[in-house]
Design a protein around this nucleic acid. Structure first.
Lengths: 246, 246
DNA sequence: CGCGCTATTGAAGCAGATCAAACATCGTGG
DNA sequence: CCACGATGTTTGATCTGCTTCAATAGCGCG
């Protein structure tokens, strides 16, 4: 049960053969719709670790679906920056750019990664013709809103240990959804990235991870993390570890 | 320049005659499209102050466009709650519910208010037929994502006085966009609501408002607030008031 | 007029930030 | 192969901004 999950195949393949279509835009689409969608999905694009897929302010022409690897989206402001999310296979990038035609954050590859390019103009045409795809697309947009609502709650209400617990649980669940082991996580992001995502400093993230390890909830060497007690993490995330009020 | 802006008219009127169509879903639509949209927009619904339009978990059947009054959306979790936004005329409510067919937060009227009901099924059909409306709808969804990204940045990076300054500036700008005086604001929400929106306690909001007043940036009696020095607020929001780094 | 709710102000405590220093890890070139 | 520097991580000591707790004051409303 700890065998290596095969990485996405390297050869060019349409969505039909993509491992991640189950999680991606094509999810649940009838075969005929899928074929039409494949027509407009452009070439794959490989981006080496640390490089930008797009930057804040870049003009918006297409969406991207993560094919392989890991990404972060970063919002930069005066004297601080926030990691708005970490994206993995099947996730969409660029949904925030539709609003005004320019990207609202940077997208950076955390490792050598690939995306599928989806020209937005053509997608919008196609979506009008295929009701199932339209629904799917709206759900994707709305899901992004939900994701961020959860993040807002986290930043507004949760104390540091809760945030980290929620982060680990979320990560674990997303790996599970991709058929990868949900207990053994290879963190692709730095402690600083995690901090910038959770509204904490790197040092605070370190200390908390150390505590979780000391308590035996997790074990951790470098960026390889194993969850030993997900129930305890879930309890923490639910607000245990302090006075539970009514 | 401080004349009372007329309130939205009380009689049933289609979007064509609605003061807020400029900011709402019909914005920029060709006349023919507008007529079709009017057909599917259902009746208006009046909700008295303090009542719920919908609750977290309620099944999702329609979107709502704010016709008059003010609203808040509240996300409740274990032992805490976060106000994810304040909505006023022209804003849409319920976009987060498309994801999974149930509402992700409560919508509460801050005063006696009205919404226009938009059956989502019919909107989705119509949107497929009217490209301009489709675009407009996608922009609305994406704008919601952007709004929340800004809120994430605020909660993750800004200190308390920055948050409050940004809040006041945002509120002021939204009133301005609605043709209402942007310097004289009648706050519709309690200090507690503001706190729950900014990730601060009510007490902290009070203290900061008191400080802003003492400094002369604003004046404030009860919930009536006047901005005297918006430039200073903008400077605060940009991170002044502490060491500005590179 | 007095009750309940919202708002204000003060004092004390604490969670997390900041500053600082050691330490691991990794790619690179001698 | 190892020395090296760069980068990322860990841990400690101190500091501070915000929370918490508490008490008072305004305000609306029956």
């Amino acid at each position: 049960m700890e065998m290596k999950i095969p990485l996405p195949k390297e050869e060019d393949g349409p969505c039909s053969y993509c491992d991640m279509s189950r999680l991606c835009l094509p999810a649940g689409l009838p075969q005929s719709d899928l074929l039409q969608l494949e027509h407009i999905v452009g070439s794959r694009r490989a981006v080496p670790r640390g490089e930008f897929l797009y930057r804040q302010g870049d003009p918006f022409t297409r969406l991207y679906a993560v094919r392989s690897g890991h990404w972060k989206t970063v919002q930069r402001g005066q004297g601080g920056c926030l990691v708005t999310g970490f994206q993995m296979a099947g996730d969409l990038l660029g949904l925030d750019a539709i609003a005004d035609g320019s990207h609202g954050c940077d997208a950076v590859a955390l490792e050598n990664s690939e995306v599928c390019e989806i020209p937005f103009g053509r997608l919008q045409e196609l979506v009008a013709a295929l009701p199932a795809l339209l629904e799917q697309f709206h759900r994707a947009l709305s899901r992004e809103i939900r994701r961020q609502q959860a993040a807002l709650y986290l930043l507004g209400n949760a104390r540091a240990e809760q945030r980290l617990a929620l982060f680990l649980i979320d990560l674990s669940a997303r790996y599970a959804a991709r058929g990868m082991p949900s207990e053994r996580l290879q963190l692709r992001m730095s402690r600083e990235d995690i901090g910038a995502h959770l509204g904490l400093t790197m040092e605070c993230v370190c200390r908390l991870l150390a505590r979780f390890r000391k308590e035996g909830w997790i074990s951790l060497t470098g960026r390889h993390l194993t969850i030993h007690n997900s129930a305890q993490l879930a309890a923490l995330a639910d607000g245990a570890g302090q006075d539970s009020l009514a």
